[in-house]
């Protein structure tokens, strides 16, 4: 499971990750305040963190958001 922390545009981030069609897939588990949790299938959490960061930074709005992506503790 990975955690994405962001104060704004949470719907956009959820959409970016859950619509990703690649080597692994993200499914949105929960959103609590700034914390969004995603279950990862088809790959490691470390790889998922890397992909999630790239997906967010590649987006026009995503790249201006202050985002922290990490493996869930």
């Amino acid at each position: 499971m990975i955690v994405v922390e962001c104060g704004l545009k949470k719907d956009l981030i959820i959409n970016l990750l859950t619509s990703y069609k690649g080597e692994l897939s993200f499914s949105h588990i929960s959103t609590e305040g700034m914390i969004m949790k995603f279950e990862v299938t088809g790959g490691s959490d470390d790889l998922a963190v890397s992909i999630a960061k790239k997906l967010i930074k590649a987006d026009e709005i995503g790249r201006i958001l202050y985002v922290n992506v990490r493996v869930a503790l």
Partner: peptide
């Protein structure tokens, strides 16, 4: 201000 509201101040 940008950082506080969750925007990437340095990128903007």
């Amino acid at each position: 201000l940008f950082w506080f509201f969750g925007l990437h101040g340095s990128n903007i």
